[in-house]
């Protein structure tokens, strides 16, 4: 009985999970601002010294700021970036854009979703409403398309966005890799369908029977999931509702300037403390 089942072979440690992401990969990151973002993965990307990563996320914050601080990312497609809470702008992200270290493709949240939906639907582009009068259209070269059926209405064609990986932080996962979140799924669902591969970090593993009782709650079925890790607490310092809330003192500590403060922050993360026990 020591042989692992085929399904359990999808389970990896957090560091092994992140080893799968090659330099240069484009990754869609789940969650929103300080809430249910896979921050343990972001920190592990830093520890493994990954480079030239692209972040795709409507509303990143701590995660992209951390990755800019460590020089992991060089491209991003985003709608709004801030630490939020009472912390405002994301300082290292701001610095990276201003210095040219980060190449930004600025979106509205809904245009980024439209680009992801184009991939979900298997189309080269997806029409999006609104946008009229925004300088973002010209900046990004978005094309306005009149309704070919003559309604007189129009939409803006947003080119498809196909990230290499979607990385999601969820509450629960089965041994097979079925995943579900409690509360809002933010943009996790569209990301999971738009990306080539899906990697999941879960707070806990539960029996498949639990999922079978309420299959409509499952966000990502196992066959879409490439690999997963069970790493409780690692959305820290963000929240993972209803398991834990934002750790604001830790966010404040993260924002202290200097390498020493940054190292201390990385060392005090739940996955780092866990590894020490191993």
């Amino acid at each position: 009985m020591t042989a692992r089942t085929q399904t359990d072979s999808k389970q990896l440690s957090l560091s092994k999970l992140v080893e799968r992401i090659p330099d240069g990969a484009s990754i869609a990151v789940g969650g929103s601002f300080l809430h249910r973002s896979p921050n343990g993965v972001a920190r592990e990307l830093v520890r493994q010294g990954k480079r030239n990563i692209e972040i795709v996320k409507q509303s990143p914050g701590y995660d992209i700021d951390l990755l800019c601080r460590a020089g992991v990312v060089d491209r991003a497609r985003t709608g709004i970036v801030a630490i939020e809470g009472n912390f405002g702008l994301a300082p290292h992200y701001r610095e990276a854009v201003e210095s040219g270290a980060l190449e930004l493709e600025e979106h509205s949240c809904a245009t980024l979703t439209a680009g992801l939906r184009a991939s979900v639907f298997g189309n080269p582009f997806q029409l999006c409403a609104g946008i009229d009068g925004s300088d973002l259209a010209e900046l990004n070269g978005w094309v306005k398309i009149d309704d070919p059926y003559g309604s007189g209405r129009h939409g803006w064609a947003i080119p498809y966005i196909r990230p290499d990986y979607a990385i999601l932080h969820v509450n629960e996962i089965t041994g097979d890799g079925d995943a579900r979140v409690l509360g809002t799924s933010h943009w996790d669902r569209v990301m999971s369908r738009a990306a080539e591969k899906v990697l999941i970090v879960a707070e806990r593993k539960v029996d498949k029977a639990e999922f079978q009782k309420a299959p409509n709650l499952t966000l990502v079925p196992h066959f879409l999931v490439d690999a997963y890790s069970v790493a409780p607490g690692t959305a820290w310092p963000g929240s993972c509702w209803p398991d834990y809330e934002v750790d604001y003192p830790a966010v404040e500590q993260y924002l202290e300037a200097g390498d020493e403060a940054f190292d201390m922050h990385l060392r005090s993360a739940p996955e780092a403390l866990e590894a020490k026990h191993d």
Partner: peptide, 13 residues
């Protein structure tokens, strides 16, 4: 560099 408009370019119109 400011945060970005979030949903604004789509919601305002």
């Amino acid at each position: 560099r400011l945060p970005g408009g979030g949903g604004a370019a789509v919601m305002l119109p």
